[in-house]
Computed example of a mutant assay.
Amino acid sequence: MKPTLPPPASMTAELVEAFTDESDIHALAEAATAAVLDGGGFGWVKPPTAAAVEQYYRGVPLVPERELIVGRMDGVIYGAAQLQKPSRNNEAQSFAVQLLHHFVAPYARGHGLAKLILKKAEEQAKALGFHVLNLDVRESQQGAMSLYEAEGFIHWGTHPAYARVKGQIISGHFYYKALK
């Protein structure tokens, strides 16, 4: 897909511990809604209201087991990802973290922002002491699968009835990456 935004002068990915600028939460909600409408999902098939998306993202930094990473182009948020830490009582899997809800708005794709967000998520996972990064993705998200494979993630399994989208059952793929 060709990007519709011109090449940015700057791109960054950063950890968000709290939202201090209302324009950030609005931009994140808009980008997430656009990604859902484009099939990017993260569980949503139809986007909820803008207020519900904003409320969801306001809450993410408050959850101790979550880390929110956002991607910016020229200072505006166009994508994000989350790290889900294992619960404190899950000692057996305490070495691994899950990557969730990784997306870039469709009109901001093609500039490398998804890769930048992914790299920041990996750095954050390592900084937190995790050794493995796990993720899963719907079969319909071929671009994401290509990115993960290009970045060294290992496809270890497929679930044939992973999700239902528009009445159709679709498969999902599971990946992991050892963090060095």
Rank of each mutant, 00 (worst) to 15 (best):
residue 67 E to M: 07
residue 156 W to N: 09
residue 107 Y to D: 02
residue 89 N to F: 13
residue 58 R to P: 08
residue 132 V to H: 08
residue 73 M to G: 04
residue 166 K to S: 13
residue 70 V to D: 07
residue 146 S to N: 14
residue 166 K to H: 14
residue 70 V to M: 00
residue 27 A to V: 09
residue 53 V to R: 00
residue 144 A to T: 00
residue 173 H to R: 11
residue 93 Q to A: 15
residue 136 D to R: 04
residue 60 V to P: 02
residue 98 Q to V: 04
residue 46 K to W: 10
residue 144 A to C: 04
residue 144 A to L: 02
residue 133 L to S: 01
residue 171 S to Q: 13
residue 30 E to T: 15
residue 52 A to L: 11
residue 136 D to H: 12
residue 159 H to K: 12
residue 71 G to K: 01
residue 179 L to A: 03
residue 5 L to H: 04
residue 129 G to P: 10
residue 32 A to Y: 09
residue 154 I to G: 02
residue 18 A to D: 11
residue 59 G to T: 09
residue 55 Q to G: 10
residue 32 A to G: 13
residue 136 D to F: 01
residue 120 K to R: 15
residue 128 L to V: 11
residue 141 Q to A: 09
residue 159 H to D: 15
residue 55 Q to S: 15
residue 92 A to D: 15
residue 110 G to R: 00
residue 57 Y to L: 03
residue 174 F to L: 14
residue 125 A to H: 02
residue 61 P to T: 10
residue 174 F to K: 04
residue 166 K to M: 09
residue 29 A to C: 10
residue 108 A to I: 06
residue 125 A to Q: 04
residue 12 T to M: 05
residue 136 D to C: 09
residue 116 L to R: 01
residue 15 L to G: 03
residue 58 R to N: 13
residue 74 D to E: 12
residue 90 N to P: 05
residue 77 I to V: 15
residue 51 A to Y: 04
residue 115 K to A: 00
residue 86 P to M: 14
residue 25 I to R: 07
residue 165 V to T: 10
residue 24 D to W: 08
residue 142 Q to E: 14
residue 87 S to M: 12
residue 24 D to I: 11
residue 89 N to I: 09
residue 166 K to P: 00
residue 162 Y to N: 06
residue 23 S to N: 10
residue 78 Y to G: 00
residue 93 Q to H: 14
residue 132 V to F: 11
residue 53 V to Y: 02
residue 95 F to L: 08
residue 71 G to M: 02
residue 59 G to W: 04
residue 78 Y to P: 01
residue 125 A to K: 01
residue 149 E to T: 05
residue 116 L to I: 04
residue 144 A to S: 09
residue 118 L to Q: 03
residue 62 L to I: 03
residue 152 G to F: 02
residue 180 K to R: 06
residue 141 Q to T: 01
residue 150 A to P: 00
residue 151 E to Q: 07
residue 51 A to F: 06
residue 163 A to Y: 09
residue 27 A to S: 15
residue 100 L to Y: 03
residue 71 G to Y: 03
residue 19 F to V: 12
residue 145 M to C: 12
residue 180 K to Q: 06
residue 32 A to P: 03
residue 14 E to H: 06
residue 103 F to V: 04
residue 75 G to K: 08
residue 100 L to Q: 14
residue 91 E to N: 07
residue 175 Y to H: 04
residue 31 A to K: 01
residue 57 Y to I: 00
residue 147 L to G: 05
residue 156 W to I: 10
residue 124 Q to E: 15
residue 143 G to K: 00
residue 36 V to L: 10
residue 172 G to E: 12
residue 59 G to I: 08
residue 58 R to S: 11
residue 4 T to A: 08
residue 176 Y to M: 03
residue 29 A to Q: 07
residue 176 Y to H: 15
residue 18 A to V: 14
residue 130 F to W: 11
residue 58 R to V: 06
residue 171 S to M: 08
residue 49 T to F: 02
residue 65 E to Q: 15
residue 90 N to H: 11
residue 49 T to A: 09
residue 135 L to E: 03
residue 161 A to H: 14
residue 77 I to L: 05
residue 170 I to Q: 13
residue 97 V to Q: 07
residue 138 R to Q: 09
residue 1 M to C: 07
